[in-house]
Computed example of a mutant assay.
Amino acid sequence: MELTTVWFSLIALLWAGYFLLEGFDFGVGILLPVLGRDNRERRLLINTIGPVWDGNEVWLIVAGGATFAAFPEWYATLFSGFYLPLLLILVALIIRGVAFEYRGKRDDDRWRRRWDWCIFAGSLVPAILWGVAFGNIVRGVRLDEHHEYVGGFLDLLNVYALVGGLTTLVLFVLHGAVFLALKTDGEMRQRAGALAARLAPAAIVVAGAFLAWTAIAHHDAVGLVLFIVAALSLAGAAVATRLRREGWAFLATGATLVLAVIGLFVTLFPDVMPSTIADANSLTVHNASSTPYTLKVMTWVAVFFTPLVLLYQGWTYWVFRKRLSVENIPA
């Protein structure tokens, strides 16, 4: 297997891991004003992701760094053409991180409410825009013969990409609700589980429509199989939420996100950014990649350090695995 294909696959896995882990973070942030009726309950929700949210964002940094090193032409075109939406995502993530740190700095209800809304907005904006961005990457954008984006911002707001944004939004919110049902106890566990059961049908409709649209447009057999399994996994999550089997439901929503992301990358291959102007203008794993020597060095670095990162993050989740309830939050 060529190293360009290896690194395309690794980047796909990094994005799948990011959506799996940061997805429930975003879901919890969006549900903060929905499930958190008072300050104590909102603190409970924040504490469920408090030890892990910043570690989950490392997957985004590594995915971006790997793209820059392995496919610099893809990185340059992506970040110049998608400058505004990616800037909005970055600002939202910064505001969200600051809100987590500053929320408890003053004993003032108005102060806390403002930062709570910052957490909500900082979770909502990326949850939508990541789907819009990936929708445009898979659909294709206006690239000229120099592989430069020549479209405008409104071109990115096409129907397919907006459905993609709605898909990531509903999947992340469902993933977050299931996570809260798994991570909390008492009344919060019951409310989160009931909300997840109500959200599951909507997620099936929206995500199913987006995946079906993608499969019909691209006619990729492997991608179609992955999309079908992702849809079945989402249906299994709906059943598990009804039965209040939180662990199985979380595994199912996680599998849905991972399979859907990998399916999108499989559908995209060998392109990394198709052109809607002419096929010759498209960026591929070949014309967008770094030199073979660079890819070889990166591969050895990944072989040594990836297991260490996975072990450390797995250990973190194991240490903070216990359920939380309002009784664990001081008044």
Rank of each mutant, 00 (worst) to 15 (best):
I119D: 00
C118G: 13
W117C: 06
N158P: 12
G165P: 01
L166K: 03
L93G: 06
V163Y: 05
Y149K: 09
V173K: 01
P85K: 10
F120D: 03
I137H: 01
A69H: 08
L154S: 15
L86F: 12
L143P: 05
V132G: 00
L157V: 12
F71V: 08
V132R: 00
H147R: 08
V163K: 05
V132P: 01
L169W: 13
Y75F: 15
H146K: 12
I128H: 04
C118M: 15
T77N: 04
L88Q: 08
I89V: 14
L154Q: 15
L86K: 05
E73N: 11
F100C: 04
V159D: 14
A70N: 08
W117Q: 10
I128N: 02
L154I: 11
L171I: 04
A70G: 11
L154N: 15
L156K: 02
L154G: 13
G165K: 05
L154H: 15
V163S: 02
I95Q: 10
F79I: 10
K105N: 07
W130G: 01
I137C: 02
I95G: 14
V125S: 09
L93V: 11
L78F: 14
F71W: 09
R113G: 09
S80G: 08
R114G: 15
I95R: 04
R113M: 11
K105A: 10
N136C: 12
A161H: 01
R112M: 11
F100K: 04
A92W: 02
I128W: 05
R114F: 13
L78W: 08
P72E: 03
T167M: 08
A76W: 00
A121P: 06
L156F: 14
P126C: 04
Y160I: 07
E73Q: 12
L166G: 05
A70K: 03
S80I: 09
Y83H: 10
W115I: 00
H146C: 07
A127G: 15
L88E: 09
R114Q: 14
F172Q: 05
L90Y: 11
L166E: 01
